[in-house]
């Protein structure tokens, strides 16, 4: 126990926790996207998928608790390290150039916080249905209808797209960074990891963005 707490107290250990929880969150996003893309197969496929998930409620709850734990750990560590990093430079430069670092690497907290606000809205919107009480009248599992109706609101669609673009930015740096944090970014692996980071972040974003685009173009409707 003491070794776990001293591991987490160290800046390097804390960063590794971010990397491990980051992997878990990326895994969740892949699974979530795979489910969402069933919308292209029609209402039956998506609603059947949603119902099947609920049929395995105990397993679903284990996954939910695990996911929540990872998310909370990721955010708590992010805030802790970001505070530490700000504290480490009390006087700013009057003139500072960035020579190599990418914009995404310098805005991880910002992209993370927008993703967080989106996740909270998303839960209130579709899981708890606080923001749209009328969804409760749709019956339990009409996920398809909720989804299509939601994207008809330009505000919701805009917020969704903005969050996905920032998520792409978060992962563009995050995926390469996690390999470095875990000590795996070296030698011949470097170009492979860089390509994977760019590939996975862009593919995930394209997948998530394809749904509002399809609705906007009328390819998916009620």
């Amino acid at each position: 126990m003491t070794s776990i707490s001293s591991f987490y107290r160290s800046s390097v250990g804390c960063k590794m926790v971010m990397a491990l929880t980051g992997i878990g969150l990326v895994g969740f996003l892949c699974a979530h996207l795979a489910g969402n893309l069933l919308v292209f197969k029609g209402p039956e496929a998506l609603n059947h998928y949603a119902r099947t998930l609920r049929d395995y409620l105990p397993i679903l709850w284990v996954l939910r608790v695990g996911l929540l734990a990872m998310f909370v750990l990721h955010i708590v560590s992010a805030i802790r390290l970001t505070q530490l990093n700000r504290w480490a430079r009390p006087v700013a430069y009057t003139n500072k150039k960035n020579v190599r670092s990418s914009l995404s690497s310098r805005t991880m907290m910002l992209s993370g916080l927008v993703v967080l606000s989106f996740v909270l809205y998303h839960l209130a919107h579709l899981t708890f249905r606080w923001t749209h009480p009328e969804f409760r009248e749709l019956g339990e599992f009409d996920v398809y209808q909720m989804l299509v109706m939601s994207f008809h609101s330009p505000y919701v669609a805009f917020f969704y797209c903005l969050s996905i673009v920032l998520l792409m930015s978060h992962l563009h740096h995050g995926i390469v960074s996690l390999f470095q944090s875990l000590g795996l970014y070296h030698g011949g692996l470097q170009p492979v990891i860089r390509a994977a980071g760019a590939g996975v972040s862009v593919l995930l974003a394209m997948g998530f963005l394809s749904i509002p685009i399809a609705i906007f173009c009328g390819w998916i409707g009620l």
């Binding site: 960063k15 430079r89 190599r100 390469v176």
Partner: peptide, 12 residues
């Protein structure tokens, strides 16, 4: 000192 966020500014 702060923690590493792998921006690679140091190497540059």
């Amino acid at each position: 000192f702060g923690s590493c966020t792998n921006t690679q500014e140091c190497e540059a």
